[in-house]
Design a protein around this nucleic acid. Structure first.
Lengths: 247, 247
DNA sequence: GATCCGCTTTTGTCTATACAAATAGATACA
DNA sequence: TGTATCTATTTGTATAGACAAAAGCGGATC
């Protein structure tokens, strides 16, 4: 039914995604996997090449294959959370938990997330400040079934985004960026005028088709922007052809 | 220096990305490519499998391999121009040139673009409509030194973004996304209320360190959004420094 | 100690061959 | 006409073997 190289691929992928093999862990040599799966080296090689192509492992001759450090798409990386950006830029970032409550998922939200009503969730609201000024409002839902340990985590010292990053592997994410006008509550918190244009980043993250977390991050439009450089050639097969973009 | 399968991959990819082979076009059979490249079928197969895995082509036994419907570099293309997006979604897109003027670059703008004052530019303003409703306002600067043929192009039948795409290769791009409140002129053109939140995409494109074009595309915030799914494993360059993700 | 050389290990690529699976199209048959 | 079957084509997978390229390692030489 499933091909051998596919099974090898999946076995290894599972272990990486599941955290059994942490970044840096050496993957068995090809000849060891040949032994284990009783197949030819080409078959093993196909599986490992695919993993390497996806960036899940890195391979070096004579050295071996290793689980790659958690990596994310460059372009997506540019659509990242403020704390990271802020810190990278040498600014001072702090945050404050506005709300932290365990609830059950109501029908409307469940539909929005594509999950079932009634699931236990942790709802978190968080205000981020950079250099003392309000910089972003974070409204987050964490699916407790996927991240049980969030139930007892206070997030007092580690921002939720970072905490999750370390706790749960994810396999898929979706981003939506919108411009919205600030409502009264948002305006007050961000210390801007009501109705002002804000940039909202919505991110939903899955682990094998089940939502891990959903977050909306609202930035005041004129104070925050995010940008990214990239080269169109940065993707594609290693050493890469020209690609199309748009002007 | 490049391996054969890689060359095959790139040759085909180039033709697809360059539009030489449109979606639906049948790619030569493996045995034909074997003949063309004088290599074994396994080598051809590796290239085609990689293309299939990336979703650039679809393959069916007994039938052949075909260029997949436009699938775009997901994350990058999600930050793409509206006309493409609109067309892909089966909507009706049209546009109108509001302004087309050859000027010289003033000091302020030059500084903003990182170019020298006094250069010849073409300034273009363009209103895009989707299904009859104003959908985006495009304000563009084209460096005429880089794209001399733009001087005589009317852009009556081909939108500037598309036209440039076909005319000039680019090596680097920078995107900035901002939320801004619509000023009076913008509001009138986009038929929205003044002060309403709008999403602005700014893109500057270079060819070997010289600006080719700079564009601001303003969307009404509640009518437009862009989104993208991706798998973190879908890319990544082998031999990557650790990267950070975010929840 | 420093440099160069060669050995060994591991991955990268390629070949030639083989058979399996899917399926479009032709053919035979009810 | 409609249906079942056969056939040819194309892709999918797997194998065994070969050599190349990268790189760690140790030893010889200066």
């Amino acid at each position: 039914m499933v091909s051998i190289h596919q099974r090898i691929f999946e076995d290894i992928e599972t272990r990486i995604m599941g955290g059994v093999w942490q970044p840096g862990h050496r993957i068995p040599f090809e000849h060891e996997l040949v032994e284990e799966y009783q197949c030819s080296r080409m078959t093993v090689n196909k599986a490992l090449s695919a993993l390497a192509q996806r960036g899940m492992i890195t391979r070096r001759r004579k050295v071996g294959s290793f689980v790659a450090s958690r990596q994310i798409d460059r372009t997506v990386m540019d659509i990242q959370d403020i704390s990271t950006e802020a810190e990278l830029a040498g600014h001072d970032h702090s945050y404050r938990i506005l709300r932290r409550k365990i609830e059950t998922l109501d029908a409307a939200t469940a539909a929005q997330l594509g999950e079932t009503t009634g699931a236990d969730i942790l709802r978190l609201h968080c205000l981020h400040t950079v250099d003392g000024k309000p910089n972003a409002l974070e409204r987050r839902i964490i699916m407790l079934a996927m991240v049980p340990s969030a139930r007892t985590e206070s997030f007092a010292s580690v921002p939720p985004g970072k905490w999750l990053l370390d706790m749960v592997p994810w396999s898929k994410a979706r981003h939506v960026i919108r411009a919205v006008s600030a409502d009264a509550a948002t305006a007050r918190l961000l210390e801007i005028e009501r109705g002002k244009a804000c940039l909202t980043l919505i991110r939903q993250t899955w682990q094998s088709s089940r939502t891990v977390t959903y977050v909306e991050i609202i930035h005041p439009g004129d104070r925050f922007q995010f940008a990214g450089d990239f080269h169109p050639t940065e993707r594609g097969i290693p050493d890469q052809p020209p690609q199309r973009g748009s002007f």
